[in-house]
């Protein structure tokens, strides 16, 4: 009798284990800190038995995880580079991108900073260290404190590409791990400036300045009119399949797009 019960328990566990599916997602902090966990929760509610492992340590880590086959999906707030495609080819991996949402890189300053607008040229001067005082860009005199993302971040390299003419950041810039840390530091520092994804601009103590007169809104980003509008990506090995495809389909469905909108990103459709 005892043996029979044990056998039955083992059989039940085996069946449930076979049914439990896990999706490993690694990469961008911009996507992985807020948006993807909420999408995962909604997806789990519709698909019981599915579990997620999400690690948000920067786009570079997500793309590397696809190349190394240690994740099903690599989140990225930037495009994969030619060198990364070359690295994937050497391992027999064919990286395939899916645009899951649009985002705008918002320039944030302390809420008490009187500045309202910066040009792209001024952004380049500020973040490369050519300009070190707010008075040089029409602000109140004070030494500018720069907050940037760390080098594993897609936003870090995307900003360099889009706003800094690919020049290097000033040596004085402070590199932080995530969008939320940037927002927190800028809120504390009256002379602070940083950049974050649109989903992170609602925090108190900061304000968004326009770039070349444009604000990061849903419409301006969707139409790619905002100068710092960008795509965000899910990278997979080949065309998405199985559970990864199911999850991506959900994200691009009306239910997924509602969540994207609520979190502060811009849906693709």
């Amino acid at each position: 009798m005892k043996n029979l019960i044990l056998t039955a328990i083992a059989a039940a566990l085996t069946i449930s284990a076979a049914r439990a599916e896990k999706l490993v997602i690694k990469g961008s902090d911009t996507l992985g800190a807020k948006l993807v966990p909420q999408l995962a929760e909604a997806f789990k509610a519709k698909n019981p038995g599915v579990s997620f492992e999400i690690a948000a340590e920067g786009s570079t880590t997500g793309i590397a995880a696809i190349i190394d086959s240690t994740a099903d999906i690599g989140m990225a707030s930037r495009r994969a580079k030619g060198t990364e495609f070359a690295a994937s080819a050497t391992k027999g991996v064919k990286m395939s991108p899916t645009v899951v949402a649009y985002d705008g890189i918002a320039i944030v300053v302390n809420a008490n900073n009187p500045l309202k607008n910066l040009t792209k040229r001024q952004l380049e001067q500020i973040f490369t260290g050519d300009v070190t005082d707010w008075s040089a860009v029409g602000g109140k005199a004070g030494k500018i404190s720069l907050y940037t993302r760390n080098t594993a971040s897609g936003t870090y390299s995307e900003f360099k590409e889009m706003a800094m003419n690919k020049r290097d950041y000033a040596g004085t810039s402070q590199k932080l791990a995530g969008n939320e840390q940037i927002v927190a530091e800028v809120a504390k520092n009256p002379n602070g400036i940083g950049y974050v994804g649109m989903a992170y601009v609602k925090a108190s103590g900061i304000k968004v300045v326009t770039v070349d007169g444009g604000a990061p809104t849903k419409d301006s980003v969707q139409a790619h009119h905002y100068p710092l509008a960008r795509n965000t990506y899910f990278y997979t090995d080949g065309v998405p399949q199985g559970l990864a495809k199911k999850f991506i389909d959900f994200i691009l469905s009306p239910a997924g797009e509602r969540i994207i909108d609520q979190v502060g990103f811009v849906p693709v459709k």
């Binding site: 495009r79 994969a80 050497t90 064919k94 990286m95 795509n231």
Partner: peptide
């Protein structure tokens, strides 16, 4: 569309990565 654009880019880079020049990993 953005997606079509990205697919074309990725296709080109994937193809290039398998040519002798692109296969060179740095």
């Amino acid at each position: 569309s953005s997606q079509e654009g990205e697919e074309i880019r990725a296709e080109m880079l994937n193809d290039y990565a398998t040519t002798p020049g692109g296969f060179l990993s740095v």
